[in-house]
Design a protein around this nucleic acid. Structure first.
Lengths: 302, 302
DNA sequence: TCACCGTTATGCCGAAAGCGCATCACCAAG
DNA sequence: CTTGGTGATGCGCTTTCGGCATAACGGTGA
């Protein structure tokens, strides 16, 4: 027994007429006659009562008609789902990300993604850059927004650069450097510095150390808090000068951000498993590329 | 896309190997290769990743594999149900019956039926004989145990005789007739009689009147209660003599049943719609026939 | 490095199945 | 009794399906 045969039976059972059903199916009537006979033989069950000039359903026929409707429904649904999955319009995606540097765009990006592909279910995992890379390597994430980490195992992973952020110094508005358009690394040699803890952001922390090293001094690191916001709090409290990427705009008017020279930058990247490059991830990449190309994010609210 | 193709895809997806799948399906490997390609073209979705020496599932392939399992499950279930329905092992049956004369056997009969065909759902409707015939004519019942009713429309209905019950007189144990082996109708001429109400049992009531008429007298009908049990109560109370079929065995030792001569009997029949003669009903008829033939009912409890 | 083995894909042919046309058998209505 | 419409059947054509032989390819071992 076959889908084609079932479809034919269904047509006859619904029309209660072989000739009308044949018209509907755009085939000749004898083919139908055969098909239904074959089905009956296959199930060894009479399905249609063809007595004098009228066709009616036997109990088994009624059951089959009901079941057929259900089966075709499920069948179509299954085909739809496969197509949608292949097109990246349906599926599942686990996104890893690090909070602060992605905060300015991630929300709006995902909002647009959900608008376009509402059937893709998204799981978000906020972690430290190191954890993100680890989960990615283990296949626990489909894709991630993070910073490069030198220790990470990047085999089988592919990345695209989203942005490079210059490092700069955050200082109180009344500080002598506050009005300048840039500050040299050298000038930080004697200052107490405040940098994000290494375990929270290896890339950033190491970039700061590299900057100092290239300027040939060893930094006096006063504090290494776990949150980027806490860096700002320390600065406000006069505990020293903070070093952060430019995306960390101080919200308080009492603080200033001044870029450091020579430019040292920390990249932000999009990473994914080459092996698990699902259509849903591809669509996300397309969206990111579109954003990069046009330079425009989508409005938060339509 | 086709059931065959889906089955082929399923085999490959489960084995993750074309050649093993081909072995399992007992076909040659090239046929499989084609079939899967056709499916992929049909859905325009890649389903299998055949890279270097290994076959793996794409996201769409995973979805299809899951859906396929569900679909085949439902498909098999549907086929099973149709077969079972045709064999009368599954289905629905509305049985009409009249209470008192069927009481000695109906319970055990249905118990055995349920034991043999547990998936047939049975609806029981107890009515007066007239109502039973009416519902049968309207197609509201699949089959019924009842007594013939002269006014009933029997077109399209078929009946088989279950038993013919002789009429007899129920009287107090101390009554002069109580020790006799039969009583002539004539002898009831002067007695006050108690008969079931005509609206409750036309066949029985009319049979009594016919008996009297053939004995050439008009009966003195004292009471016509609605329940057969009430007939016995009246007799016990000394209100007259009851006339009932022999299946009404007086449980009280104070009452006696004595057959009437000449024999007048009321039949009990099994009736069904010729047009709605479902397999479930056929099985019930077979069971009844078996009972009639062997004369044996099945034990109430195994 | 190269031959070899086992993998999937492709070309080709014979067998089988599906379909349409013509026609039959049947029944009801005119 | 004819006529028109129904489903069933016989037959030939076309399509499809499967098998065989073989190609293309990648991994493995000498």
């Amino acid at each position: 027994m076959d889908l084609r045969q079932l479809r034919y039976f269904q047509a006859v059972a619904e029309e209660l007429s072989y000739s009308r059903a044949a018209q509907r199916l755009r085939i000749a009537q004898p083919a139908l006659s055969r098909a239904v006979q074959d089905v009956e033989a296959d199930l060894d069950a009479p399905l249609l009562e063809r007595n004098r000039r009228s066709v009616s359903l036997t109990p088994a026929g009624k059951v089959l008609l009901r079941e057929a409707a259900i089966l075709f429904e499920r069948w179509d649904e299954a085909m739809r789902r496969v197509r949608r999955t292949a097109a990246g319009e349906e599926g599942e995606m686990r996104i890893g990300y690090i909070g602060p540097p992605t905060q300015p765009f991630l929300g709006r990006l995902l909002k647009e993604y959900r608008r376009r592909y509402p059937l893709v279910s998204i799981h978000l995992e906020e972690r430290t850059p190191e954890r993100v890379w680890e989960m990615l390597a283990k296949g626990r994430l489909s894709v991630a927004f993070t910073r490069p980490v030198s220790t990470a195992d990047t085999s089988g992973l592919r990345t695209i650069l989203l942005r490079k952020e210059r490092l700069g110094v955050v200082l109180p508005a009344e500080h002598p450097f506050a009005q300048r358009s840039s500050v040299a690394w050298r000038q930080l040699a004697r200052e107490p510095l405040i940098v994000l803890a290494r375990r929270e952001g290896v890339g950033l922390h190491d970039a700061v150390l590299t900057g100092c090293q290239q300027a040939k001094f060893s930094p006096r690191v006063a504090y290494t808090p776990s949150l980027i916001g806490t860096v700002l709090s320390y600065v406000e409290a006069g505990a020293g000068l903070g070093i952060v990427p430019e995306s960390v705009v101080p919200p308080e008017p009492t603080l200033r951000f001044v870029p450091l020279k020579p430019v040292v930058s920390v990249p932000l990247v999009l990473v994914w498993q080459e092996a698990e490059d699902t259509p849903a991830v591809q669509r996300l990449r397309e969206l990111v590329t579109e954003w990069q190309r046009t330079g425009k994010l989508w409005k938060a609210e339509p």
